[in-house]
């Protein structure tokens, strides 16, 4: 464990906590893409298949449980909670995310480290996480009004993956057998790049102390 990875995990945790708090406190999920949340739940399911069979550390197991629990509770709020579900603007959340799932699954079947069920599912989760934010970014562009909690949510998510890239550089430089993780790095780089334009507008709006507006 290195500081980049730990900080990245904390940013990731913060992003889901911010989102859960917003939904729980305001009893509203306006501006949140349900499709992105569904993709993230799928990412965690496919990546943490070994949660009960493999043990790496208490931290690792606890964080996996926290991420799975938060993903499912966000889905429960947005789909089943009698008040919150009314605030989900379905007609703004139009990204056809099933194509993302299909594309990532095909790619995982073609490009992976080992052709085993667990490894292909893990690879699928890495690809899917890279694009999972797309429905949310599209929805932000469309709804245009970004409340600062949603902005923070996306900002923390982008920071988490950016820190993970520093972690990969660090591990590449310090660990011997870490050189075959190029697949993760490419996917992680694409994922972070997707946030680039959002970061630009987020920092600009923060600096000018104005409402965050994404260009149409």
């Amino acid at each position: 464990m290195n500081i980049f990875r730990f900080a990245g995990d904390m940013m990731h945790l913060l992003s889901v906590v911010v989102l859960l708090l917003k939904i729980h406190k305001m009893k509203s999920c306006a501006g949140i893409s349900l499709k992105t949340q569904e993709l993230y739940a799928l990412v965690f399911i496919c990546r943490y298949l070994d949660i009960f069979t493999g043990f790496i550390s208490l931290y690792n197991t606890i964080m996996k449980i926290v991420f799975l629990a938060s993903a499912f509770s966000i889905l429960w709020y947005m789909r089943s909670h009698k008040v919150v579900r009314q605030t989900y603007d379905k007609d703004q959340d139009t990204f056809r995310h099933y194509f993302l799932i299909l594309a990532c699954m095909v790619l995982a079947l073609l490009v992976h480290h080992k052709f085993t069920f667990r490894e292909v599912m893990w690879t699928f989760s890495i690809y899917l996480e890279a694009v999972a934010i797309l429905p949310q970014l599209v929805m932000l562009q469309r709804t245009r009004n970004i409340d600062n909690l949603t902005g923070n949510y996306v900002f923390f998510l982008g920071t988490y993956r950016g820190l993970y890239m520093l972690n990969w550089v660090y591990r590449y430089l310090t660990e011997v057998h870490y050189h075959h993780r190029w697949l993760t790095w490419i996917s992680g780089f694409i994922q972070t790049a997707l946030y680039a334009d959002f970061f630009y507008y987020y920092v600009k709006s923060w600096r000018n102390n104005e409402k965050l507006q994404l260009p149409a």
Binding site: I56, S57, W122
Partner: peptide, 10 residues
Amino acid sequence: KSSGHGHDEL
């Protein structure tokens, strides 16, 4: 530390 093939990252 996980083996080369284990995934020890979240």
